[in-house]
Design a protein around this nucleic acid. Structure first.
Length: 479
RNA sequence: GGGCCGCUAGCUCAGUCGGUAGAGCACAUGACUUUUAAUCAUGUGGUCGCGGGUUCGAUUCCCGCGCGGCUCACCA
């Protein structure tokens, strides 16, 4: 396998040496040039042009040769004639291989079959490729290689390239939207002495200079709230979180999260904000409010359904669900096909019902409101019912896209909630954060938006690794 | 972590009911000065993922391992 690969490499190395023997440097210098996308827009026959790119196709016809140049903005056909470029330059062109980078200049014309083409007067070597491009008919299909050598995937598969261009445009659009709305982007620590703001296993590491353990953040929440204490009224952070959990179709250990906080508001403002944000990117980046295909097609046109957690559970498990004894609830959940350990209380059973039987059925955008306060220590309880939190979860295509809270800002209640969550393990309570709260945090609404999942939904993709350029894979080891 | 499936030429794939393998593209050589996944002719290219077992003989059957995919579990 390696020998075979080397054979191709040897042939290309031989071509490199032939070029060098002719006085042509295989790795050339900067080459000022016009982008192909711009050339295509201003094309006029007879005018001159200067472009550069990767030579993706070569069709040699004896004393003339056609090729296609791809510069990342587009593709353009080039044409060489032996008597035009001269014997030496034409001879040297024979030592080019598909995948090489070159620069060309010449005059524009239209071929007999109507294709816009550059007749090359001079060409310049920019970079020799020693390894071949993926197959030109079928592209690169091998899933493992697509992820391990994503650059080949991006060369060979146009739709993959477009997906990542859209992802970039989406992120730009979100930033622009928020800046226009008066939000300030901030950067808080990714390396934290104590991971907080969510319940997940962190990646742990060692900081030698301080001789102390550190964690990669699982969420930026507790630092962003410190900034609310500082008096910033509209802030957001758009960056990576790290969670040391399983790897599957919807989970990557590092993923991109947008967190937004706005002082003097609550969860209802977040509802309007997330809807406006998603519609903005759907309109401007995807140009469509219906995304995905078939039964999975998502209609983003408002209004979006809003329903309480309680009502959803009653809808699925019976109106008397919340009056049932633990034993009766357990029996009914088991009858519905769930595995329910004997020591679970009513709250845990109910949440299992929600996660396993209900959430995945919510395909169209749905705000699930009033979740159990016991599960959400960082949210403020509802005024009319302290057992439920004043929150929503935006669910689309069965996936949680954006949780939003009216944020907890009472330091005493916050401490109680932390202690309940930590099982009175004092190690886990973030005292620095509680101290900040004791200095006074204004009432605020806050929200997290899972960017990878949002891109998945808007792009109609089912696997998170298809929307991450370099998804996590098991490292290759020697055989 | 469990279950199932996959791994054959550089790429995309076929195939061998157990007798060491094929196609297209790519690559090489030749022909061709407006081609379009150029065409035509000739040719090169493989430890059939790795290791072990059964067998006269294993790419094929069995076991283990590696990597990947799907799925279940875990994951507020």
């Amino acid at each position: 396998m390696t020998d075979e690969r080397n054979l191709f490499r040897e042939q290309r190395l031989a071509n490199r040496h032939r070029l060098e023997a002719m006085g042509i440097a295989p790795y050339g210098d900067a080459f000022p040039r016009e982008r192909i996308v711009e050339l295509a827009a201003r094309f006029r026959e007879g005018e001159s042009a200067r472009i550069a790119g990767r030579l993706v196709l070569i069709r040699n016809m004896g004393k003339s040769t056609f090729g296609h140049l791809d510069d990342g903005t587009g593709r353009f056909q080039i044409y060489l004639q032996k008597n035009e470029v001269g014997d030496t330059a034409y001879e040297a062109f024979r030592y080019l291989d598909p995948g090489d980078w070159i620069g060309v200049e010449g005059v524009l014309f239209v071929t007999r079959t109507g294709e816009r083409t550059l007749r090359v007067a001079r060409w310049t070597m920019l970079s020799k490729a020693l390894l071949p491009l993926p197959e030109k008919w079928h592209g690169l299909r091998d899933v493992e290689q697509r992820y391990r050598q994503r650059y080949l995937d991006l060369i060979a598969n146009r739709e993959v390239r477009e997906l990542f261009c859209r992802r970039s445009a989406l992120i730009w659009e979100i930033r622009q939207f928020l800046h226009t709305d008066g939000f300030m982007e901030v950067e808080t620590p990714m390396l934290q002495p104590q991971a907080g703001g969510a319940a997940a296993r962190p990646f742990l590491t060692r900081y030698h200079a301080l001789d102390t353990d550190m964690a990669l953040r699982i969420a930026p929440e507790l630092y962003l709230k410190r900034l609310l204490v500082a008096g910033f009224d509209r802030i957001f952070e758009l960056n990576r979180n790290f969670r040391n959990e399983g790897l599957d179709r919807t989970h990557n250990p590092e993923f991109t999260m947008l967190e937004i906080y706005e002082a003097y508001t609550d969860v209802r403002r977040m509802k309007d904000l997330v809807q406006a944000l998603i519609l903005r990117v759907a309109d401007r980046v995807y140009g469509n409010r219906t995304v995905g295909k078939g039964e999975q097609a998502i209609r983003l046109d408002p209004p979006w359904r809003e329903v309480s957690y309680r009502d959803l559970v009653k809808e699925r498990m019976g109106v008397d669900w919340f009056e049932l004894s633990v034993e009766a609830a357990r029996a009914r959940a088991r009858a519905a096909g769930l595995e329910v350990p004997a020591d679970w209380d009513h709250l845990l059973i109910t949440h299992e019902v929600y996660e396993k039987l209900i959430e995945r059925t919510l395909i169209q955008p749905t705000f699930v409101t009033r979740l159990p306060a016991a599960l959400l220590p960082l949210a403020r309880p509802c005024a009319d019912d302290p057992a439920t939190a004043d929150v929503f979860e935006l669910v689309i295509r069965g996936q949680e896209i954006a949780p939003a809270y009216t944020e907890m800002n009472d330091p005493l209640l916050q401490r109680e909630a932390f202690l309940r969550q930590a099982g009175n393990n004092l190690q886990k309570v973030d005292e620095d954060f509680l101290t900040a709260l004791e200095h006074g945090m204004p009432p605020a609404g806050g929200m997290g938006v899972g960017i990878d999942r949002l891109v998945m939904i808007l792009s109609g993709e089912e696997a998170i690794r298809d929307v991450i350029l370099f998804p996590q894979l098991r490292p290759r080891n020697e055989g």
